[in-house]
Design a protein around this nucleic acid. Structure first.
Lengths: 141, 141
DNA sequence: TCAAAATGCTATACGCTATAGTTATTGTAG
DNA sequence: CTACAATAACTATAGCGTATAGCATTTTGA
């Protein structure tokens, strides 16, 4: 057995857990031909009809350069509808197909979150979630 | 303010925290011209002189196809030395320069981990670390 | 001894991230 | 009202970590 110098680094464990978690989520979403980020964008639009893609980007921490092709893909698949709200920005809404897909995506993501929770010892779960939210809501750059 | 349907998903928070954490680590390591994975590989070699790259890959969860160019880069920079242990595998050791770099990398990573810990409310820190290790050591694929 | 496993490798692709730079529109301060 | 700054959407490009497929060689073990 070889020594593991990263054994005791919480940050490294965080990274490993996140990667594994994300890859499982991606595997579940292939059924809908959605990438994880695409799915999250669909959910945001579902909850905020008429939202602008720049607003979604700010919320999710996705720069506009990456929002553009992402939104274009969803529009090309007729999952969302773009309607100009003024000369430079468009409001995004789910199409009928988009609503169905978003609903399924929500189910998948909820299941996936439930799986995560299920693997956490009950006694520590609340603290764990609390810390994650603390860290996530820190203006960490 | 727009609604955030991901607000209450711990898994999503996990992902965001991990990404932010990694990007800060990467920023700190540019000084050594090391990527995060390269730094972790250096540390593993430092702690396990003569280790084979296949062993490192298994430990860190990096497939051999990705270990090959990674190790080649470190060797090209004369940070590590490859010595054949048999016809197909090589033992990896740090060079003098590699030892210096690994030492600095360890310092950076320790500081980085300390920063993470510092941002966690003390009361929940132990539980948080416990959960991370639980999740990390689950056979999650 | 011979087939299976292991090792290192190339080529290639995907997903998320980022920066730089463009065009057009809107907002605002003088 | 004009000039300048900010906003929005976008293209092009790149870096990093991840993955699969396939290959040549060597070692192992039934």
């Amino acid at each position: 057995m070889i020594r593991d110098p990263l054994k005791d680094l919480p940050g490294y464990a965080l990274r490993r857990v996140s990667v594994a978690f994300m890859s499982r989520l991606a595997a579940r979403l292939v059924r809908l031909h959605l990438r994880p980020t695409e799915a999250t964008v669909l959910l945001v639009i579902q909850d905020n009809p008429g939202v602008k893609q720049s607003e979604i980007g700010r919320l999710l921490g996705v720069v506009s350069a990456n929002m553009a092709p992402l939104v274009a893909r969803l529009a090309d698949r007729n999952l969302i509808i773009r309607q100009a709200v003024d000369g430079r920005s468009q409001g995004l809404t789910l199409s009928e197909a988009g609503r169905r897909t978003a609903q399924k995506a929500r189910g998948i993501m909820d299941d996936h979150e439930a799986d995560l929770i299920a693997h956490i010892p009950k006694a520590d779960c609340a603290a764990f979630v609390r810390v994650l939210h603390t860290l996530a809501n820190q203006k960490d750059n």
